[in-house]
């Protein structure tokens, strides 16, 4: 079954066609890669999915629900978690609190509950803390729980963003260049982590520059160039596709 469907998505910024009539499906339980040269419109596609931008035309259907034009936090609560290409952590808060942010959408208590510290609120806090710590352990950052996000290494900051996205209990996570800034060893661990996420029955859509990562981790690949989709298929086919070789691999990226 298709978990996410993009239909004829189009978005321009001023005169620039950032995304041009892009359609593809993301099957539930798969790992899909979105690749293409710099400025091809990959991040913009992500921003359209998560409601950071509103498409000029086209539709986005997630889990049977039209999410086009919905507010981001609503989309998150429907089950899409994301990370950002340029790290966007809450730098002055601890790693644990960063992950707790992801728990927010799955919690209920408000200001009154907090001030009166009702039994329900206390239970909810305890549970949130426990699951946030579980997600931190999942990405291997349990030791850093009480460190400020800004004091983490670059690679660990990327992992922390993933933990925060996972804490929202997503059915789909979209990762924007998760390996950028990581060394080779970290990248290998990241591939394992991506597979572990998939083993949790979470579907993954990822943008990646590192071709070896994409080829190793993804089951299907969608290729963008100048905002348009130029190819789609399994890694083996994409590797051989002359259009892709010319547009992407040929540029020396």
């Amino acid at each position: 079954m298709s978990l996410l469907t993009l239909k004829n998505l189009t978005k321009s910024f001023g005169g620039l066609m950032a995304v041009n009539d892009v359609s593809f499906d993301v099957e539930e339980g798969s790992i899909i890669g979105l690749i293409g040269p710099n400025g091809a419109g990959k991040t913009t596609v992500f921003n359209l999915i998560t409601g950071n931008h509103r498409p000029d035309r086209g539709e986005i259907i997630f889990n049977g629900i039209h999410i086009t034009g919905m507010l981001t936090h609503r989309i998150v609560s429907l089950g899409i978690g994301r990370t950002f290409q340029t790290i966007r952590l809450f730098q002055n808060l601890t790693a644990l609190e960063n992950v707790l942010a992801g728990r927010h959408a799955r919690m209920k208590s408000g200001a009154t509950g907090a001030m009166l510290r009702t039994p329900g609120q206390k239970r909810e806090e305890r549970d949130a803390l426990a699951s946030a710590l579980r997600e931190l352990s999942f990405v291997g950052l349990q030791e850093q729980a009480n460190q400020l996000a800004r004091n983490l290494s670059y690679g660990n900051q990327r992992l922390l963003e993933i933990a925060r996205a996972l804490a929202t209990e997503p059915r789909l996570v979209i990762l924007d260049e998760p390996a950028s800034g990581m060394n080779e060893q970290e990248t290998t661990l990241l591939i394992d982590l991506i597979r572990m996420i998939r083993d949790r029955k979470i579907t993954i859509l990822l943008i990646e520059h590192d071709m070896s990562l994409v080829m190793r981790a993804c089951e299907r690949i969608v290729v963008l160039e100048y905002g348009s989709k130029i190819a789609e298929g399994p890694p083996s086919a994409i590797k051989e596709d002359p259009k892709v070789i010319e547009a992407y691999l040929g540029t020396g990226d």
Partner: peptide
């Protein structure tokens, strides 16, 4: 609390807060 943390998230980075599921 959840309320207090949400305020801090939006102070730190509004886009990231919204993207983490905070209204």
């Amino acid at each position: 609390s959840r309320f207090g943390r949400a305020l801090n998230y939006l102070r730190e980075d509004e886009v990231a807060a919204e993207g983490s599921g905070i209204n």
